[in-house]
Computed example of a mutant assay.
Amino acid sequence: MTAVPTPSQLAQIDDEQLAHLAMSWRTRAGYGDRDAFGVAHALEVERRRRLRQSQLQQLPAEPMAPRPWWKFWSTSPSGSSDGPMSTT
């Protein structure tokens, strides 16, 4: 692989092999191989894209209830906790 891989070629590589290839191409680029920079970059972009998708799947389905921005010290969404400026 001396040319920048296409998305279809990257899709055929599993995550573990992708991480290994990205590291080895980045090492080659670090030693001054000009052709390795583009390949290393493409591999790393694909690796980050896959990591981002897997992290998004782990997010909770329900968002937390919003609270007013000025009650940043509050721990409950209703704002009924005793914060540092509470007068009750």
Rank of each mutant, 00 (worst) to 15 (best):
R49I: 01
A29H: 07
S78K: 11
P60E: 03
G79D: 09
T27H: 09
R26M: 09
P63V: 14
T75A: 08
Q53H: 06
S54D: 01
S76I: 04
G32R: 02
V4T: 05
E16I: 05
E46L: 01
T75C: 11
M64Y: 13
A19V: 09
D14R: 11
W69G: 11
A11F: 06
A36L: 09
R47E: 04
V4F: 00
S54Q: 03
P60W: 02
L10E: 03
H41G: 06
T27M: 08
M1A: 11
R48N: 13
L51Q: 08
L10Q: 09
Q9N: 10
L59K: 12
A40T: 10
L18Q: 01
E62L: 15
T87I: 14
W69K: 15
S78Y: 09
R48P: 04
G30A: 04
W69F: 14
R67E: 11
D15H: 12
D14N: 09
G79S: 10
K71P: 00
R26A: 14
P5Y: 06
A3F: 05
S8I: 13
S8P: 09
Q57T: 06
S80G: 06
G83S: 14
R26P: 01
V39M: 04
L18N: 02
A22L: 00
E16P: 02
P77C: 02
T6M: 02
M1I: 10
P63F: 13
E46Q: 03
T6R: 05
T2C: 07
S74I: 03
T2W: 12
S24C: 04
G83L: 09
P60M: 03
P77Q: 02
T75G: 10
A36M: 10
H20W: 07
L18G: 03
V45H: 08
V39N: 02
E62Q: 14
Q53P: 00
E44N: 15
V4G: 00
E44Q: 15
A29W: 08
G83I: 12
V45I: 10
G79M: 06
W25C: 04
S54H: 01
V4P: 00
P63A: 14
A11Q: 13
Q55S: 00
M85G: 11
A11H: 11
P60I: 02
A65I: 15
P77W: 04
S78T: 12
L10I: 11
T75L: 13
R26Q: 08
E16M: 08
R49D: 01
L10C: 13
T27W: 09
D82A: 10
W69R: 15
G30M: 04
Q53R: 10
V39L: 07
R28W: 08
M64V: 14
L51Y: 04
H20V: 12
T6N: 05
R48S: 13
Q17G: 04
D33G: 08
I13R: 04
R26S: 12
M85L: 14
L10W: 06
T75E: 10
T87S: 13
P84V: 10
W73H: 08
H20S: 08
L51G: 02
A19I: 07
A3V: 06
L56H: 01
H41Y: 09
E44L: 13
T87F: 12
T75R: 15
R34H: 13
A42V: 05
W73V: 05
A42T: 03
P68Y: 05
T75Q: 11
